[in-house]
Design a protein around this nucleic acid. Structure first.
Length: 412
RNA sequence: GGACAGGUGGCUGAGCGGUCAAAAGCAGCAGACUGUAAAUCUGCCGGCCCAUGUGGCCUACGGAGGUUCGAACCCUCCCCUGUCCA
């Protein structure tokens, strides 16, 4: 592969490259000397799980790895304890050492679903940040100007709204710049929202006498709602450890518009293939639902394998298109003797958060019950009376449906 | 250290003595329609209880006290945030 081809492949799907000519020169240099580029992605383990949004940039790191460059996965175990101010309108509560360690552990296992474990250099930024003396930190701060720091949108909008900014938040980009310096990186990957931090990293590298790394930014993946970015706190995410069926279902719930975005950022489909699918849908030769099914199949296969993915599709079709019950309904055994109000039972089972909510939902017609027989073709009965009494003697095994949730109950 | 402004439900934000479980918007949940899609429309959106009603009770407008028949709203102190001055 020529340098130009490599460059085209590596920047596919990228939102921005700073600077493209520098990256090309680095690739060129690497090709001539045979010395692989050091490419890193820093991630703060602020939550125990990663979701599809994180995989966009991980996938890009893998591309570099596939091209023979050195992929460095940097665990921001130290920086996670400061908290990245990017995109937040409030100071984040700092994580404890214990939380960070626990998250880092689960993160790695998930990261290797995409990266090649053998070929990946895994580093922790506590290696160097944890050892910094206060005079070194002071010196580091001396390399950057407050006015420039306050230029960034996050801080500016907080200042305008008279919201608090804590001093330690200013330190975040400076400290993570030490990662780039310590790793002597040639390229850093990140999401577009990281732009400010990434640029600071370049500046600080230069201040410490190193050539500035090239920066490659990937777009932010929209969540299932199609509007806000995918994030766990918004609940619009697909976790990569989720069961195949859940993953499949969530992917099927995205809008038709959003599915093209997912094709672009979450699959290896080439822009050409995607364009073909699009034209097939617009000319009516393909049904968008089928195109979405194959999207879901591809993504689920990445994390669960082809077989599980095919099964997920089959289950989906059986459940939602033929009305059958899925195989793996959550089920509970219940030692219940006395008859009682249905809403109380449902709250007790965790289907609703409170008795008041359960009663409301029953009135709204959101609750169904079906006796379980040998076939898994349920005969749903709408339970719209909030005073209805559930008698365990009369219903040995039933399935409740509360909105989208299902729960199987066996009286023991 | 001083002067000033502000702290209301998941968020934004109205209310500034009773008719306030608190407007409005967003988010969320559910129903209708569908392709478990989107869009749209409808309802709900603190909790407990009775049973179905313009029903009873409890908790809640930063915290603690106070004034009042009655406080998110007035007073005092405290905590938190911001602005200006030093």
């Amino acid at each position: 592969m020529t340098v130009d081809e490599q460059f085209a492949y590596l920047t596919k799907g990228a939102a921005e490259v700073i600077r493209a000519d520098e990256l090309k020169a680095k690739l060129d240099q690497s090709a001539k000397t045979g010395k692989p580029l050091r490419v890193y992605l820093g991630v703060d383990p602020t939550a125990p799980d990663i979701h599809l949004g994180h995989t966009v940039v991980l996938r890009k790191l893998k591309h570099f790895q596939d091209m023979g460059h050195t992929a460095i996965f940097l665990m921001g175990d130290f920086s996670a304890m400061i908290g990245d101010p990017t995109g937040v309108s409030e100071t984040r509560p700092p994580l404890t050492r214990e939380q960070v360690d626990a998250n880092a552990k689960t993160y790695l296992a998930q990261v290797f679903k995409i990266l090649d474990r053998e070929k990946t250099e895994v580093r922790y930024n506590s290696e160097w940040l944890g050892k910094m003396a206060s005079h070194e930190i002071v010196r580091l701060c001396g390399h950057y100007r407050l006015a420039r720091m306050l230029e960034r949108e996050d801080f500016r909008s907080r200042l305008e709204k008279n919201h608090p900014i804590s001093v330690h938040e200013l330190l975040y980009p400076l400290l993570t710049a030490c990662d780039a310096v310590s790793l002597q990186s040639d390229v850093e990957l990140g999401a577009t929202e990281q732009k400010f931090n990434l640029l600071v990293h370049r500046d600080i590298q230069r201040e410490y006498g190193q050539p500035a790394q090239a920066v490659l930014m990937m777009p932010i993946l929209e969540g299932l709602d199609g509007v806000q970015k995918m994030s766990k706190s918004l609940g619009n995410y697909v976790g990569i450890t989720e069961p195949a069926a859940a993953m499949f279902g969530k992917l099927m719930s995205i809008s038709d518009t959003l599915m093209w975005r997912y094709y672009e950022l979450l699959t290896d489909a080439t822009p050409m293939e995607i364009a073909e699918l699009k034209s097939a849908v617009s000319t009516g030769t393909a049904h968008p639902m089928n195109i979405k099914k194959s999207l879901a199949r591809r993504i689920v296969a990445d994390f669960h394998g082809g077989e599980a993915s095919a099964q997920a599709l089959a289950d989906f079709e059986a459940q939602f298109q033929e009305g059958l019950l899925p195989e793996d309904i959550p089920s509970r055994d219940l030692a219940l003797r006395e008859p009682g109000k249905l809403f109380r039972l449902l709250t007790g089972l965790g289907l609703f958060g409170s008795n008041a909510e359960a009663q409301r939902k029953i009135k709204e017609g959101a609750v169904y019950m079906a006796e379980l027989d040998s076939s898994n073709q349920p005969c749903w009965r709408r339970m719209a009376d909030p005073t209805w009494i559930f008698d365990p003697a009369a219903h040995r095994q039933v399935v409740f449906r509360a909105g989208k949730r299902l729960l199987k109950i066996t009286i023991v």
